[in-house]
Design a protein around this nucleic acid. Structure first.
Lengths: 217, 217
DNA sequence: ATATAATATGACTATAAAGTCACATGACTA
DNA sequence: TAGTCATGTGACTTTATAGTCATATTATAT
């Protein structure tokens, strides 16, 4: 946790420091990010920094929490409607919300993304605690509910599929960013929706050709 | 390229250096890997290292090439049989071969994996050149062939699905390693095959419930 | 045996990092 | 006004890094 002195700071100064840190951590990994660069960008003294934060990790954890909170804001509406919607609607909305978060909070998403991809297990433990984040646990529950409701094929391996769907959410985000390079952010969501639609279609139906003459039975 | 002095070295010494480097780069990212640690592990002088390699990058590139060559050996049989096998058999064999490579060359696979995940675009360019590796291009061709042969649903988005299948190959590798933690390497491939089978099933058929009463038509 | 070329060496340079600390400045209180 | 406490500061310490270089050793050729 940042020290009280940090929260007592005038808002302008506080956000100046946060922005400098977000800039730095979105450009560089935790290890390569430099406190010296951050304090220079934010125009504060090195010593001041250590009046605000315990150390580099303390700052990084704070920034990461900001990112997680922000992402949750995007997912919240979908999570709230979960009970009344069918599985594929919820999944579709989660994917869309995920991409929207990345579109509108690119730097924050980069920071979280980098941490997820990182092989620095020490750092991950410091951030998440010993309990690894089972982001697929939620999808597992959702899948089981879908099976009960008769929406999902009960012969699937729920554990494996939940991991697949979790990773596909990263895949679609990356793919969207690649196909929409130059970072053009438009209010037109049609292409985004179309892409998610295609992916959901594939997840629903698979890629094998359908029709009476081609099945294995 | 390593210098001639390196290739002139007695084989024992050369492999000692290579093993030390592979150890280091499998434990640490390119940036955090330390030449000093490598020369200590390999029991050579710092100066000797620079008789063998131009610099750190020269060594890393060499190690990465070794990893890529080794992986290709695993994939080769499947690639050679490609024409005579159907799409899903080829995909299944590629996934299995990919996991086998990781099982039997864990350190090398870690090194390649870390580079793929890395956000150090400079480094990636140094290794791959300006042309980004389109590992999904191959799957795209394979998908198109599958569609022609009447094996694959022609209404899918080939580009998107090829990216999905590429990422799912990473997913299944990670998943296999997690469920088979402690690094127990057995000659029993039944659990590996079962897992790949489940994933292929899902890719083929999707996860939506099938049967006359539940379809949307 | 001598000369020459190839290889081995580790102290050293330059650079950058995180974190510290004695002191300076400002604000609020009695 | 004097005193106290919170905040601000940047030179400094420690530690680690990649890469260099003058010198020593060994192998080869004459």
């Amino acid at each position: 946790m940042p020290k009280n002195t940090f929260f007592n700071l005038p808002e302008k100064k506080r956000t100046r420091i946060l922005n400098a840190a977000i800039d730095e951590f979105s450009k560089y990994s935790y290890e390569k990010a430099s406190i010296t660069r951050i304090v220079n960008t934010a125009n504060i003294a090195k010593g001041s920094f250590y009046q605000y934060f315990e150390n580099k990790l303390d700052l990084f954890r704070h920034i990461f929490m900001i990112s997680a909170d922000e992402k949750l804001k995007y997912l919240k509406p979908t999570l709230d409607k979960m009970e009344s919607e069918d599985f594929f609607t919820t999944l579709r909305n989660l994917y869309v919300a995920g991409i929207e978060f990345v579109k509108e909070n690119y730097k924050l998403s980069q920071i979280a993304d980098r941490l997820m991809k990182s092989n620095n297990e020490n750092l991950k433990n410091e951030i998440f605690g010993e309990t690894k984040p089972k982001s697929n646990h939620f999808l597992k529950v959702l899948l089981l509910k879908g099976i009960k409701r008769g929406e999902i094929d009960s012969s699937i391996d729920v554990e494996l599929v939940s991991v697949m769907l979790t990773n596909l959410s990263f895949t679609i985000t990356e793919y969207y960013l690649k196909t929409n390079e130059k970072g053009i952010v438009t209010d037109d969501y049609s292409d985004l929706m179309e892409m998610v639609e295609k992916m959901i279609y594939t997840i629903e139906n698979g890629i094998k050709i359908k029709g009476e003459d081609n099945n294995d039975y």
